[in-house]
Each structure stands twice: as C-alpha cells, then as structure tokens.
Design a protein around this nucleic acid. Structure first.
Length: 707
DNA sequence: GCTTATAGGCCGCGAACATG
DNA sequence: CATGTTCGCGGCCTATAAGC
C-alpha cells in the first residue's frame, strides 16, 4: 500500500528531485560576494568569477540522507512536523540559515507558482480552486492532498523556509479574504455582524472570518478593538458621571507630562557623535561580557540599561539604540558578520565594527553595501584576521554564461542537458522505446518551443524584461571592451557547451542514483493514473523543468500579472510593491508622507543606485535583479538581526514572557513528537533571559569554518 | 513617539491516519 | 483493534512594520 502511494506520486517527487539536483554548495570568503542576493533560497550573483565558480562546482549530492536532503528533497519540506536537534544539525552542517522573517512577495509568488505547477503536474486540483482548497475549512485531521510530496512541492525553491512556515503562509495567501481585500475598512453593518457572529460562533474566528470574507486575524483584532472601545466608552461615561473635573485634570496633566518628557527627534538627528562616544565607553566597560555574547536578546532593553548611558535621557537612549540597530541590521543584511572569524564572532567585535564604521564612514553613501563591505574588510584587515568562509547554496541553472545575452541560449543548453539526462534516465529505467522517441521528438523542437516559451514569459514579464534587454543592448553598444568580453564569454560558453557532455555524466550519475532509488513507474501504477496526464507524464516533468528554468531566469514572471489580475495582497505588501513598481518610472514622491518614507529609505535607495551601477557593469551577466528584489533586499528587518545566523534559538528567547516561559516548562513533555513545529523543538536552551550562546550555532560555525 | 495593523509563532485539541 | 503519530485548526501572544 505504502509503495503504491509513493508510486502514484512519483512524478511530484521526480520533479522535485530534478529541481534540486543542480544545486551547488559554494564557499565564499569575500563578504562582498552574495552580500544580499538571495533569491528564494537559491543564491545568485552578478560576479562573473562567481558564476564561473558555480559553473565549475560539482553539484550537491542530494540522494539519500545527505546534507539537507532526504532522497533529493530538503528533509524539512517533507512534513510540517518534527524538527529535531538532528534537523538543526543538518541545517547547520549544510550552511542553511532558515528565514524567520515575513514572507516577501517573491516568496509568495514562488508559492503561487508552485501551486500552479503542482496542479499542472498532477491534475489533482485546478489552479483556480486554491481558495476552496485552503480556505473553505479543511476537515480536521484530513490532508489536503494524499500526495506525500504535496507540501514539499509547495515549498519548492524556498530552501530557507520550513514546511510549517510555508503551509501557514499558504493558508493565508490563498484565503478568499485576500481577494476581497482583507485590509478594506470595516463598515458599521460589518461590525454589527461581527459581534453577532462572535456570539453565535463562540469566537471561532476562522468560521466568522469565512462568513465575513475576512481572515481570522482581522476578525479577531476588530472584535477585540470594538470591545476595547466599548469598555473605554462605558468607563468614560461612569467616570464623568462620578467626578468629571478631576479626571479631565488628570488627563491633562498626564498629557503635559508626556509633552515635557518627549524630546524632539530633530535634536539628535544625524548626530552619531554621542553614539560613538557611548560605544567607546560601552566597549571598554563591557568588553568581557560582550566577548561572551554571540547575540544580545532584547537589545533595546539591554542597551538602555547600560551604565555608560546613565547621563542620557530616555529619548536620546532610544535614538542611539535605533541608530545602532540600523547599522547592525545593515551588517546582518549584507551578511558581513558571517565573515567574522569564529573566535571573534561575538558582540564585542560586532559593536566594535559599528564603532569603526561610524568613525570611518564617509558622509555620502556610507551605508551602501559596497561602502560597508569595504569598511568591514578594512576592519578585519586591521585586526589581521582572516575572514571566515561562508557556505552558500547556488543553483547551476542560474549561472551558465549564455551566448547572446538572451536567455534562450541558456535554456536551450539546460534543456539539452536535461534531455540527455533524461534519456539516460529512461535507459536506466528501461522505459518503453516509444516514450524515448516521443521525448526525442519533443526535444528536437525544444529550441523553438523554448523561444516561444520565452516570448510568452517576456510578455508576462514585459517591464522587467524590456528593461533588461534595453539595458543590455544599450550597454553593448556602449563599450568595445564589453564586446570583447562577450566574445570571450561566447568562446567560453562554446567551450562549456563542448564540455557539457563531459559534465553531463556527473549530473546524470546523480540522476541515475535518483532512479536507482526512486520507485520505478510500473504498468500497474500507470493504469491507476488518470489518462491524459499519464500519457505525457514525462513530458510533464520536462515541461515543468522548463518552466522552472524560465522562472529562474525571469525572476518574477507572474509577478505583475498576478497582482493585477488576481487577489489583493496584504496592505504592506501591496504598498511595498507599488513603491517598487513605481519607483523606476518616476522619481517624484507626491506626498509628504512619501517624502518622509523616502528619507527613511534613503540608505536603501542609495544602495539601490549603487546596485544599478553594478548592474550596468554586469553587462553580460545573466542575472539582473528586478527593482523589486533590490528593494526587498535593501529593507532588512530587525528580525534579521534578531534571528541572525548565529542563533536560531535567540528568537525564542525574545519570547521570554511569563506565559511563554510557563509554557516552556512542559515543552519537554511535548518533546519532538507532537506539533513539531520547528520552534517548539528548537527551544532546549533558553534559560538565560538576557543573552545566550547558542551551542548549535557554534557547532554550525565550526562546521562551516572547518568545512 | 505612540498607536494600530499585520502576520508568524506557540501550543492544545480532536480527528484521521499509520502501524503492529 | 489498540495505540501512537500526524495533520489541520483555533485561540492567543507578540515582534515588527506602517501610519498618524
């Protein structure tokens, strides 16, 4: 029985295995490289040398229990439960850092794409019925799909997310409420309905949400807000009845107090001198303890309580804290601290670097990736340290140099490669000859198909693509050097093509191993399958593979279309996206708010400019980031600092509220079985409230450095 | 700087599923 | 069939982003 299930869904597995088989594990010592380029868990780089490195690097072995893979699929994508110490270790060993931050639009798009292509692959669902599948109330305990790889497929490409995270996101993403606009304003009638439904359904927010076409979250929060308001109203009424004047006076005096306490921000703006002084004192006074810390939990609290800051008022402390956090965030976003030697990877070095940065920064563009990286390298150099290597996952599909600076050439190549692999595959599996013929026939047409496919994708992705093409054309005409370079690259790529056959056995051996391990499709199971799909099963896989290639090359093929045509995103996302889309076209910021925002985003924008410059330089580079990606990459969240690579567990410490602590007491009873939401199982060590050295991360770091 | 909105996380529950 | 495990859901908490 078990086998037949696996057989029935062998395509899903095969497709996933194919997806991951081109992964390359790369060690990078230069912090400048990959400083902020992470695409759906698959790293990319514009550096030609890195592209070359990736090209030359052997593919990661994904078969068996190797690295993060269990039989070709990341182990934490199989099911949403069970994330154990062993799991942590494997992640650490493989250099995978799980994201803890919110899903960004690129990730959302990837999930949507995964859903679509899953529907296409299996015919189990219609892509349009996502909201029905995920939103209309799953029967408790019943799986959405019997396919054991269903969730793994939805996780495809999201290497730095766990199944649990993706599943949760999926339920929100495909919620019908998103279509209607979950952020729409509440009307009075809705409020009344909400109150009624809350009573009727006994605060079952998901049910209520479905009835009101909103998510459970918005219903819950609206209801609590309404209740709060009512309480306030009734309180006010009773209070004013009791002793009107006194209350008013009290309120007034409190307001006055607040006013006098608050300090004008402008007083401190752009003045880092005091921060530098404070940092100096802090480093002197707390050197010992800071050297022991890898991360400071509850940073704000910690910072404001330091003895060195007693002379400053609260507002000033908060501002300095914010300044400090900003710099730390950037460092994390640029992954600079990952290059600190393991023995110096502590808070002292981090803060010392911040101090170094603040004292040595130039005024303009000081926070661009390049500038910060330069300073960081200088700092490391001054210390006579050797930067630690980082391990990153890259996708081979991303980096093959292409001929005409069009992607078709590359896709062709990949297709050729996959064709060959596939044929070998078939041989191994003893597939029917006519199947192979079919494949061959199809592959003969590949070139045309690919071009067609590309055209389609270009239409879909017209803006970005056009920009890309325009850029590349313009650039090409600009310099002869670049042409020469290109010629060289052409030669290289020709050579590569010639070598491709040499390389193929590598991959195909990998594939062979997949085949030897995976359950071979048999006639019985074929009969079980649905007709139309069955005939084109392998074509499907190939097609999907092709899609994947296109996806990877077109960055966000469905992005604009999706947003436009289908569901409305969450407020934040929509706005972010709007910003992203609009910015390239017009630099004007119509409103004051936007101006403020602009000020806030000054650094990231500066950075973006630099990025564009580098983009210019990276003429022939296959991967040109879209504005969107750049935008998101340059907007690091504090969580990225909080949940830095050095301690996955730190996050849980930040939950050190009494409630979570008491909850934590019985976590051992829960241990690793039920609800193995990764978080639950990661929390072995959080005893120290303030700070904590994460043993896992140390091991990880050691592994990375030793590796 | 404060408030509000958003969404991810934790954990318990009950039902379905898997296993022996 | 009994038992253990997994899954989906729900309620709540909380960090963080966005808005004012």
């Amino acid at each position: 029985m078990k086998e037949s299930v696996a057989e029935r869904y062998a395509e899903t597995k095969l497709s996933l295995q194919k997806y991951y088989e081109n992964l390359v594990k790369l060690e990078i010592s230069d912090p400048e490289k990959f400083h902020k380029v992470s695409y759906l868990g698959i790293k990319r780089s514009k550096h030609e040398e890195i592209q070359k490195e990736i090209e030359d690097a052997p593919c990661v072995d994904t078969i068996g229990q190797v690295g993060i893979f269990d039989d070709g699929i990341p182990f934490y994508h199989y099911r949403r439960a069970a994330f154990t110490k062993e799991g942590n270790r494997r992640l650490a060993e493989f250099g995978v850092k799980l994201k803890q931050s919110r899903f960004d639009p690129t990730e959302d798009r990837q999930i949507k794409r995964n859903w679509k292509s899953y529907c296409k692959l299996t015919n189990l669902f219609d892509p349009s019925e996502a909201s029905e599948v995920f939103c209309d109330g799953q029967k408790r305990g019943k799986r959405v799909a019997k396919d054991p790889y269903f969730y793994a497929y939805l996780c495809r490409g999201l290497v730095d997310r766990t199944c649990a995270q993706v599943v949760r996101r999926v339920y929100i993403l495909f919620n019908k409420a998103q279509e209607a606009g979950d952020d729409r304003e509440w009307t009075e009638s809705e409020d009344i309905m909400l109150k009624k439904l809350a009573k009727k359904h006994n605060n079952k927010w998901a049910t209520i949400g479905r009835k009101l076409n909103r998510t459970r979250f918005t219903c819950y929060h609206r209801y609590t807000k309404l209740q709060k308001d009512e309480k306030v109203k009734s309180c006010c009424l009773t209070a004013t009845e009791d002793n009107n004047g006194l209350n008013i006076e009290n309120d007034h005096s409190e307001n006055e107090n607040l006013k006098t306490k608050s300090t004008s921000r402008s007083r401190y703006c752009k003045n880092t001198n005091s921060l530098i002084t404070v940092l100096e004192e802090l480093l002197k006074a707390e050197e010992e303890s800071l050297r022991d810390k890898i991360k400071i939990v509850k940073f704000r609290e910690w910072f404001t309580k330091r003895h060195a800051l007693t002379e400053y008022d609260e507002a000033k402390k908060n501002l300095m804290c914010r300044q400090l956090q900003d710099v730390l965030k950037l460092c994390e976003a640029y992954r600079l601290f990952e290059c600190l030697p393991i023995e110096h990877c502590n808070c002292y070095s981090k803060l010392e670097f911040v101090h170094y940065f603040l004292t040595n920064k130039k005024d303009k563009g000081s926070r661009t990736a390049k500038a910060m990286e330069d300073l960081f390298l200088k700092y490391v150099d001054d210390k006579t340290w050797t930067p630690r290597n980082r391990v990153l996952l890259c996708h081979k599909l991303d980096i093959t140099p292409d001929k005409e600076n069009t992607e078709s050439g590359q896709i062709k190549k990949i297709q050729d490669a996959s064709k060959e692999r596939h044929l070998l595959d078939e041989d191994q599996n003893g597939y029917e000859e006519n199947q192979i013929e079919k494949e061959e026939n199809q592959d003969k047409e590949n070139g045309e198909q690919v071009e067609e496919g590309q055209e389609e994708a270009q239409v879909e992705n017209s803006d970005n693509e056009q920009r890309k093409n325009k850029n590349s054309k313009r650039k090409r005409s600009k310099t002869k050097e670049k042409r020469e370079k290109k010629q060289e690259e052409e030669q290289l790529s020709q050579e590569n093509e010639a070598q491709q056959t040499d390389k193929l056995p590598k991959v195909s051996e990998n594939q062979r191993r997949i085949n030897s391990k995976r359950i071979k499709p048999q006639k019985e199971t074929q009969e079980n399958r649905e007709g139309p799909f069955e005939e084109n099963r392998e074509n499907h896989v190939e097609e999907l593979h092709r899609e994947l290639v296109e996806e990877l090359h077109h960055e966000s093929p469905e992005g604009p279309k999706n947003e436009k045509g289908t569901r409305k995103r969450s407020k934040t996302q929509t706005k972010k996206q709007e910003n992203n889309v609009e910015r390239p076209e017009s630099n004007e910021e119509p409103t004051n708010k936007k101006k403020n925002k602009k000020e806030k985003q000054k650094e990231p924008e500066e950075e973006r400019q630099v990025d564009e410059e580098t983009q210019e330089k990276a003429d022939d580079c296959l991967i040109i980031k879209t504005e969107q990606e750049i935008e998101f990459d340059t907007q690091p969240t504090y969580s990225s600092y909080n949940n830095s690579n050095y301690d996955q567990e730190g996050y849980n410490d930040s939950y050190s509220s009494p409630s979570s602590k008491s909850r934590g007491k019985n976590k051992s009873t829960r241990a690793s079985n039920t609800n193995g939401n990764q978080r639950g199982d990661q929390r072995y060590t959080s005893d120290n409230e303030e700070e904590e050295i994460d043993p896992d991360s140390i091991i990880r770091n050691l592994l990375i450095s030793v590796d």
